[in-house]
Computed example of a mutant assay.
Amino acid sequence: MPLRPKILAVDDEPMNLVIIEELLGDEYDVTTLSDGQATLDTAKRLKPALVLLDIMMPVVNGYDLCRMLRAERTLKHLKVVLVSANAKIEERVRGYEAGADDYIVKPISPDEFRAKVRVFLRLKSVEEVDEFRSRLLTLLAHELRTPLTEIFAPAEMLSGQDSMSDADRRKLAGIIYSGATRLHRFIDRASFLASIRGGQVSMECVATDCVPLIHQAIMSAHDRLATRGCNVEIDGPSSLVTSVHPGHLFTVFESLLDNAIHFSRRGDCIQIRITADPMQSFVSFIDRGPGIDPDRLATLFDGLDVSDIKHHSSAPGLSLAIAHGLLSAMGGDLSVESSPGCGSEFRVTLPRVQEPLGAVR
């Protein structure tokens, strides 16, 4: 079942927030704030599709908040609507100049308000899909070069050489197979990411013990761990039940462990830390690798950034984007803390448990 679009409403008047919740709460996931200063941090954490901003607020007004939201690169597709009792044309113009997508005058007409919210959410979706397609094509152009070269060059040699030993033929055939496998894997990942972004992946969540999935991911990575000489330590409870899609969560754990192995030094210990809480639980994958450039952190889970192409073909680029997309669709989150030379910690925030769970899988 797809998640409801997230809306953040900011107003220092509690009654206005109550009205917005009544108008939109049945259809959308509405978060309300009465403190304008917390808007930017909350928006970066929640990643809402739409922000509704009151203009006249203490400390920081709606115009300034709008500018701050527009300056945040991770929120570039965010739709911002200013809501005010001031109907003056100059105030509307000021709002548009601050970066607002629309300006709604109080008192709100319920039907018009809902209609405008639907329009802006649809626009946001269309913009994101169009950009995703464009950037995916650009990424494909970059990513296909190496595996196609691995296929065409040895194929040309095979077709042009009449006298060649069986050993050389097998070697060239192996290079072709490696290139084709790499190409197939990349296309599979790109297609899966597109399906996640398009809401076309099943998200039927059930009560699941997450710890066995962690052990399964470690077993799956046995050969890669052995090749790197790395070991894994698990710290935390032996059981952690929440409501998730088991297959998708396994994919997340497998991707994060693979990423940790990829960037770990030979002989390193990878830590998996499990934190259980009655309302919110976490699983962290901690490596001692080279860390991540701070300039990459903001777009790390985008998966389509060709500015640092080495992070795609080997697995981490698209795999991290897929993991982030799957967790978001299940109601969880994926975040990272890292600095160059100090390793990285990828933290899985598991979906919040809101009611008693049934039989555990």
Rank of each mutant, 00 (worst) to 15 (best):
L82T: 09
E143D: 08
S109D: 12
A49F: 07
S163P: 08
K88Y: 01
L123I: 04
S125M: 02
A155I: 11
S163F: 15
E91P: 01
N61E: 04
I89M: 05
F132T: 08
I151P: 07
R145M: 09
A141Q: 09
P58E: 03
A115W: 13
E112Y: 15
F152T: 12
L121V: 15
V59W: 11
V80Q: 04
I108P: 07
M164A: 07
R118C: 04
R114K: 09
D64E: 13
L65E: 02
H142A: 11
R73S: 05
E72A: 10
V60Y: 14
T181S: 12
N86L: 02
L53H: 05
S109E: 10
V105G: 06
M164K: 06
G99Y: 00
R94M: 04
T149R: 14
L82A: 12
T146P: 12
L69V: 01
A141F: 09
N86H: 03
A49V: 05
R67M: 00
M57H: 00
I104F: 11
V126G: 00
D130Q: 15
Y103W: 10
M157R: 15
M157C: 15
S165L: 09
E156D: 12
D162T: 13
A98K: 05
P107C: 06
V59M: 13
T146L: 14
K47D: 10
E143F: 04
S178V: 13
L136G: 08
K79H: 04
A155V: 12
R94D: 02
V119F: 06
L69A: 01
T181V: 08
A153G: 07
P147M: 08
V117N: 03
E90Y: 08
R92N: 01
Y103V: 08
G95I: 01
R133W: 07
A155G: 14
E143W: 05
K106P: 08
K88T: 03
E128H: 00
I175F: 12
E112R: 14
V119D: 04
R145K: 13
V117M: 06
S125P: 00
E150H: 14
V93L: 03
A141H: 12
I175S: 14
E72T: 09
D111R: 11
V51L: 09
I151Y: 07
D101I: 03
D54M: 09
K171E: 09
G95C: 02
V60Q: 09
N61D: 14
L140Y: 15
P58G: 03
A98D: 02
S109Y: 06
R122W: 03
G95F: 04
E156Y: 11
V59Y: 09
I55A: 08
A180I: 12
L158P: 15
G179N: 12
P110E: 00
F152C: 04
R118Y: 04
D102A: 10
E91V: 02
M157Y: 15
A98F: 04
L75T: 02
T149L: 11
V83R: 03
Y96N: 06
A85F: 07
G95E: 00
L139Q: 01
A85W: 06
R118S: 07
L46R: 10
R45W: 05
D166E: 11
S163Q: 15
D102N: 12
G160I: 02
K171Q: 13
I89G: 00
L144V: 15
V81A: 02
V59P: 08
L52R: 08
